[in-house]
């Protein structure tokens, strides 16, 4: 393929950072983008993702670095000062690292339904172009994945990322193993490229945002020797709500016989039990779900003999309204 490509900057690489959660396809998105840029647009490029554990639901960052074809890429370090940030899940807006290093002339794309503008976006530079797209909604409608939609939106924002070339790479990625997915992904991609909303006047910050230098909580002067961790169960501070992908279990107390079956299959130990009401029928009662920990696997629903748990679509605020706390004195 013979084409001349216009990169936005002459003096540095173009760098993109995908902020995501395992299972949403950020790694694949970065890979498709960089592969197409290198093999079909004649650019030089690098792509990699940050891995902790590779479980579904854990935080994933994917990085793409692109430069002119003749320029070597040497550094293998993560993208600190991105030209583009693509946020796969709105909960990640609550994480300051999501914005870190954002360039003042960059593009910030996030996945969310239309509606109120998240307050966190005020942290962005004034001059950044902010773009919202309902990637999950489109993906569900098109039987595709959010990454296809977000790639479409990204290409629409940077003319040098030739949408047809990137789309061809996306299709090629699936052509082998899932030929049936190609048409779905194409529609999702094209809708992502057009059905976005540019949000005006949200950023408040001046200039580039500072790059993040995350520090560990403990250091060599404070950390117990030998890696000892004298804090039993402190993972309970983690918030896993972001692992849910649109559904949550809802308890209907009237139907519950408090049998305890669901408790044995919940992998996340987030069903909240208490002693039954004085003089009541039950010695122990299921009071509800602590959605802070619920990953929405729905195994509890499958196990329930009475239909007391139902699968409900997670609308904004629903989990907060229904949540019953497991550790009310400790963890809000």
């Amino acid at each position: 393929m013979n084409r001349a490509v216009r990169l936005p900057h002459t003096d540095r690489f173009f760098e993109a950072r995908f902020e995501s959660i395992g299972g949403l396809g950020a790694h694949a998105a970065g890979q498709v983008l960089a592969t197409a840029a290198v093999l079909n647009l004649g650019l030089n490029g690098a792509h990699f993702s940050s891995y902790g554990s590779e479980k579904k639901g854990s935080l994933v960052r994917s990085f793409v670095r692109l430069g002119p074809g003749e320029q070597p890429i040497r550094t293998s370090t993560p993208v600190e000062a991105p030209d583009a940030v693509i946020v796969f899940h709105a909960v990640l807006l609550g994480n300051p690292g999501t914005f870190a290093g954002m360039r003042k002339d960059g593009v910030f794309i996030y996945n969310a339904q239309a509606g109120t503008i998240p307050a966190e976006l005020a942290a962005l530079p004034k001059t950044v172009r902010v773009v919202r797209v309902d990637a999950l909604g489109i993906a569900v409608e098109e039987n595709s994945r959010p990454n296809a939609v977000l790639l479409g939106t990204l290409c629409s924002q940077f003319p040098f990322l030739d949408a047809e070339v990137i789309l061809a790479a996306l299709c090629a990625e699936f052509a082998g193993k899932h030929p049936e997915a190609v048409a779905h992904n194409e529609r999702a991609f094209r809708r992502g490229a057009t059905e976005f909303e540019a949000i005006e006047n949200v950023g408040r910050a001046e200039g580039d945002l500072p790059i993040a230098k995350p520090e560990p909580e403990w250091g060599y002067e404070t950390q117990p020797a030998g890696g000892l961790l004298p804090a039993p169960g402190n993972m309970a501070w983690n918030d896993l709500s972001a692992s849910r992908t649109g559904w949550l279990p809802v308890l209907h107390g009237d139907k519950c016989i408090h049998c305890g079956v669901c408790d044995l299959v919940c992998p996340d130990m987030c069903l909240v039990w208490g002693d039954g009401k004085e003089g009541g029928k039950f010695e122990r009662e299921l009071m509800g779900v602590d959605y802070r920990y619920c990953k929405g696997c729905l195994r509890c629903i499958e196990s329930c003999p009475t239909g007391a748990l139902t699968k409900d679509a997670e609308t904004p605020g629903l989990a907060d309204r229904l949540r019953v706390r497991l550790f009310p004195e400790l963890i809000s």
């Binding site: 039993p232 993972m235 983690n238 992998p267 602590d290 990953k295 696997c297």
Partner: peptide, 12 residues
């Protein structure tokens, strides 16, 4: 075991 661990949804 406390909740808050990082296993995949539905992990057995």
């Amino acid at each position: 075991v406390s909740p808050g661990h990082g296993a995949c949804p539905g992990c057995g």
